[in-house]
Amino acid sequence: MRAVTRTLVGAGTAVGIAVGSLAAAGTGAAATAQDTKPAVAAESVAPLAVNNLGLSKAQAKNLQRVLHRDWGYPGPIDGLLGTQSWQAMQRYLKKHWQYRGPIDGIVGSGTVKGLQRMLKQHYGYRGAIDDIAGPQTKAAFKRFANDHG
């Protein structure tokens, strides 16, 4: 009886290995085909970075309304300062506040410096133009957003 059981188990194992190898071969072929042409572009699924620099959603909506009206912001007025909001802000900073970087929607050092220049001139920012969006920068940015509400 044991010999029969070993033979059946051995045969079952061999079939399982063969089926598994075929399945793996099919999966490998599918993976190769999939790698050559993605079903969805990475840009369409990547989340947009949101950086409100301390603004509440209501304050960010105030800013988005100005950016929509005057600086080509095409997105929703949702209180989330994402790439499109910051691109519009960079257009404003480039025209008036010596921003020299790309219009890429990334809140980098050039964007913060341009923002600090504007805030220093009009919204009580007293800190250095140092590209650090610290508490003084954020407080002045809130005054700017509240002023446009």
Score class of each variant (00 low, 15 high):
G12H: 01
L93G: 01
R100C: 08
G149L: 08
K113M: 11
S21I: 11
Y99V: 08
F144T: 07
R91N: 03
W71L: 03
A23P: 00
G12E: 10
N52T: 13
G124I: 01
A49R: 15
P135V: 12
K37Y: 03
T32K: 03
K57E: 10
M89N: 08
Y99C: 03
A49S: 13
R126M: 12
V40G: 06
A30I: 08
G134K: 01
A145I: 05
V19H: 15
V40E: 12
Q136N: 13
G82L: 09
T111G: 07
T5L: 09
A41Q: 14
V107C: 05
P135H: 07
V66L: 03
I77C: 05
V9Q: 00
D78M: 14
I77P: 04
G26P: 00
L22P: 02
L67D: 05
K37A: 15
S85T: 11
V9C: 10
I106E: 05
P47N: 09
M89W: 03
S56E: 11
L48A: 13
R126N: 15
R117S: 07
D35V: 14
G114D: 07
D104T: 04
V40C: 09
K61D: 10
K142Q: 09
K120R: 15
N146D: 14
V15I: 15
L53E: 07
K37L: 13
M118N: 06
D131M: 02
A39G: 10
G105K: 14
Q116I: 00
P38A: 06
A58W: 10
A29N: 03
G72R: 15
K113N: 09
A133Y: 10
L55I: 08
G12N: 01
Y73H: 10
